[in-house]
C-alpha cells in the first residue's frame, strides 16, 4: 500500500534569498533558481501577452520550448524558465508592449 515518506522539508537547504525586480517592483528569490520558479512563487502568473490576440500568457512548458514565459533582460528576450536568478537582475515583462 501507499507509504507516506517522512517529511524532509526542514532538511532542505536553500540558497540565499536575493532580490530581483519585475517591471520595477522588487521580489525575493533564491539565488540560482529559475526566474520562472521565482515568478510563480511571487504569484506573478501573467508574464506576457500573446502576440496575436494579446490575451495573457504565463509559464507553461518550463523547458524552453513554448516561449510563453519570455521576458526581457538587458534588452534581450529570453525564456524565464532558462534564466537563473542572480543579484541585480532586472526583468521587464512583455505585457502589452508589442508594438509591431
Amino acid at each position: 500500500m501507499f507509504q507516506l515518506a517522512p517529511n524532509h522539508q526542514d532538511d532542505i537547504v536553500r540558497t540565499a534569498k536575493i532580490r530581483f525586480t519585475f517591471d520595477g517592483e522588487s521580489f525575493l528569490a533564491h539565488e540560482g533558481e529559475t526566474l520562472a520558479a521565482a515568478l510563480m512563487r511571487a504569484k506573478l502568473l501573467h508574464i506576457r501577452d500573446a502576440p496575436g490576440d494579446e490575451s495573457p500568457r504565463g509559464v507553461f512548458c518550463c523547458m524552453g520550448l513554448c516561449q510563453e514565459c519570455v521576458v526581457q533582460v538587458d534588452g534581450k528576450t529570453i525564456e524565464s524558465c532558462r534564466l537563473s536568478v542572480s543579484p541585480d537582475l532586472h526583468v521587464t515583462s512583455l505585457r502589452r508592449q508589442l508594438d509591431t
Binding site: P51, G52, T100
Partner: peptide
C-alpha cells in the same frame, strides 16, 4: 548528390 537545405521557425508573431 544531396543538397543540405536549411529551414528555420521563429517564435509566434502578430499576423504580418
Amino acid at each position: 548528390q544531396a543538397r543540405v537545405n536549411t529551414v528555420s521557425v521563429t517564435e509566434r508573431l502578430p499576423m504580418l
